[in-house]
């Protein structure tokens, strides 16, 4: 995640990237899963579609048919510039036939979690950041990271009381409050942490009140409390997360938000919420170090409705263990 700033914020790298089609993806799946897109990747980078262990993070330059032109894992912008120059040099040496596109039948995915995007439901972009110990202020901005939270159409409706009228109060159904607690109000600021198990959640509650109804627009206020504590014992069964170190950790956070529900369309036209709390412990596998119950990290989470940016179609980090039966599984 340091590469976001060290490499990709360098103006020379941004300018040089114009000579390419820039793309990003998640490498764990590409290395290990049996999907056609993953097998294509492995065939092209290693000459063999079998799964690859270790970590193949880094920068790759491919011709449109998938021929690997250059590859390197670096956090150094100078090294990234050299890699791009080397890739462009190889590209310029290719003949017309060698520049042809790959047949999509070779690489189009059979399954991606993004296929389950609930575009008629509620899709939130969540951003989370380390904050100064005493709250937000002008003291500077810490590390940050990003994820998405998904609710399908029925789940989006269940954020609202059955009868939508002013001063109606409502409690978000427990499974949805648990979804936020287990998968979203999590300390992923310094890199991915594991999801929480149901048994790790001591408290997850969201209260909602309709504060205004104006024609088709119903405004709600949202209040939430989350308390999670893991004893460090992995409890999620056979998932990719079992390979993640499980250690003691916890979260204590408060959430406040507001949203506008369009009654006629049956969907949110606006939604934003912030959470603030403390996190301690962690897997040790990401960049988080030295946060204890005595000296926790202060974190702010901000949830907002996505727009049409294709990058907001990305699936939640913990989608493979989401408590949602409408998510299409790889072997479905």
């Amino acid at each position: 995640m340091a590469g976001r700033r060290s490499v990709w914020n360098d103006p020379r790298v941004i300018e040089k990237a114009r000579a390419f089609v820039p793309a990003t993806d998640e490498v764990w799946r590409l290395q290990r899963h049996q999907d056609r897109e993953c097998r294509f990747f492995r065939q092209k980078v290693r000459g063999n579609p079998a799964p690859i262990g270790g970590s193949w993070q880094g920068l790759y330059i491919f011709a449109p048919d998938g021929t690997l032109l250059a590859r390197r894992n670096t956090l150094n912008p100078d090294a990234a510039m050299k890699l791009m120059d080397a890739g462009l040099e190889k590209w310029s040496a290719l003949g017309k036939e060698e520049r042809k596109a790959a047949d999509p039948a070779e690489y189009l995915p059979e399954h991606r979690w993004e296929n389950s995007l609930p575009s008629d439901g509620l899709v939130l972009r969540s951003t989370f950041r380390d904050l100064p110990e005493d709250g937000i202020g002008p003291e500077g901005r810490g590390r940050w990271n990003r994820d998405h939270a998904w609710f399908n159409r029925d789940e989006a409706r269940s954020w609202m009381p059955e009868e939508i009228s002013i001063r109606q109060k409502h409690t978000l159904p427990e499974p949805l409050a648990l979804r936020l607690a287990r998968f979203h109000v999590v300390d992923n600021v310094s890199g991915q942490e594991g999801p929480y198990a149901r048994d790790d959640i001591e408290h997850a509650e969201i209260e909602i009140e309709v504060t205004a109804v104006d024609g088709n627009d119903a405004t709600i206020q949202i209040s939430g409390l989350f308390r999670c504590e893991s004893d460090g014992v992995y409890k999620l069964g056979e998932t990719d997360w079992r390979h993640f170190p499980s250690r003691t950790r916890g979260i204590d956070a408060t959430l406040r938000g507001e949203a506008t529900w369009n009654i006629e369309q049956g969907r949110f036209s606006a939604f934003r919420a912030a959470a603030h709390g403390k996190a301690w412990g962690g897997s040790g596998l990401n960049g988080r170090r030295g946060v204890t119950q005595e000296q926790p990290a202060a974190i702010g989470w901000y949830f907002e409705l996505v727009n049409d940016d294709p990058r907001d179609r990305l699936a939640p980090a913990f989608i493979d263990v989401y408590n949602a039966d409408w998510v299409i599984q790889p072997d479905a």
């Binding site: 995640m1 590469g3 976001r4 990709w8 990237a17 000579a19 390419f20 089609v21 820039p22 793309a23 990003t24 993806d25 998640e26 490498v27 764990w28 590409l30 970590s55 193949w56 993070q57 880094g58 920068l59 790759y60 330059i61 491919f62 011709a63 449109p64 032109l69 791009m84 890739g87 462009l88 590209w91 890199g191 991915q192 990305l314 980090a317």
Partner: peptide, 12 residues
């Protein structure tokens, strides 16, 4: 154009 692909554990 050539593809410049940035891969990480977890989507960048």
């Amino acid at each position: 154009k050539p593809l410049l692909l940035w891969l990480m554990n977890g989507h960048p």
